[in-house]
Amino acid sequence: MEKKKVLVIGGGAAGMTSALEMAERGIEVILVEKETEIGGRAATYCCKATDECNRCAACLVLQQRDQVMQNPNIRIYTNAQVKEIGKKGSGFSVKIVYDDKPVSLESQAVILATGFDPYDLSKRNEFAYGQEKNVVSGQELEQAIKEKGSIAAAYGDDIKKIGFIQCVGSRDLSIGNGYCSRVCCMYAARLAKVIRKDMPDAEIDIFYMDFQSFGKGFGEYKENIQKTDHVKLIRAIPSKIYGFPYDRLTVRYTDSFSGTQCEDKYDLIVLSLAITPTEGSRQLAEQLGVNTDSYGFMAGEECSVKTSQRGVFLAGVCQGPKDIPQTIGHAKAAAGEAYLYLCG
């Protein structure tokens, strides 16, 4: 009997989890990743442990990557783009461009794990993102800390005041993003803790709308970062950031505790960019006949991992914002359903 095959599109946390789960159950996996390495965005995140683990789960992704690379049941195509995908008989046929060459593949099931793109700020310049080098996204900060080891090593010792701005592109009906990206409050809080450990004297402010902390023991996070880590929480979303002609970044906002217009100087601004559906996922959804929700995330049918197209399953953030453990749980569920579909 020929082995059953599943195609997993996306080699991030979700795709790798699904791939491993399927491979462990004896299904042959084709894993297609557009970047040169598997791992996805989460593989670029930094560890947010202080003296103990702060439960960001970024390390899980690297452990998975190691396992995926060693698993003989997983065939990996990196630098590979899906060009065309569709039903063929009871299965699927897909054309990919792999290292600039077309390759045709077939499988009996498809797991979509295309992840997300951070909200594209290029159309909006009020936060000076892309113009000021010290206005960075949360992901860029994570990556810099991971690569350089600490915030001081990444941005210099003279960083004295750091501001996090939450909900940039999230919960914003004016741009049609009427949803919460769910992970940003907790990662900002965890990053604040990491920064506090490196820089005991720096001022750390978080601009927020509603602090989204939940999960075991995370309810106290808001209080904890204020009391223990001396992080200032400012309930306001700044209206504008000025760089030039000032020597430091100037943030203008309305302080909700005084009701007054304020301006404050910062050395580093970190924007918590919304989690948005990827451009490619829209095309994939169209080609496969998978429904999307009003924000463009792929929509589950019956449950959050099955879709309107039989044999196509959703794993991870392509279905909606999730943190890493939620992504892993979701991707396992997707693999479980795909397995039942193939062998049940």
Binding site: E21, R25, C303, V305, Q326, H330, G336, E337, Y339
Partner: peptide, 29 residues
Amino acid sequence: HGPIHGIELNKEVEAVKAEVGRFASGKVR
């Protein structure tokens, strides 16, 4: 294992279904 909201519960149910689904065929490799 911690208070959980309905939609999150559905996701957990999906995850747990996948976990125990390993045993569905009567054989585990």
